[in-house]
């Protein structure tokens, strides 16, 4: 995420979306990177801003899409 938005400190945030740190284009970039990194395709119906509001949320999304815990 710091690669996508280097100007933000994500460790200080409680909600990436509400605090304006990730917009829809950032989410698209993040999904493409996660798909490539983990060899998956995150389900299109789950590419919702609320699933990208925290690191925990993103981890849950990855698990749901087949990445081992």
């Amino acid at each position: 995420m710091t690669e996508i938005r280097p100007e933000f400190d994500f460790s200080e945030s409680s909600n990436f979306i509400e605090e304006g740190m990730l917009d829809s284009f950032d989410i698209v970039s993040l999904v493409a990177s996660l798909d490539e990194e983990f060899g998956i395709s995150i389900d299109g119906t789950e590419i919702l801003p609320e699933n990208f509001s925290s690191v925990d949320g993103i981890i849950q999304l990855l698990i749901k899409n087949g990445v081992a815990e």
Binding site: S24, G44, I47
Partner: peptide, 9 residues
Amino acid sequence: GDDVFNFVQ
């Protein structure tokens, strides 16, 4: 964009 993307999927 978000709404349209999700509608399509």
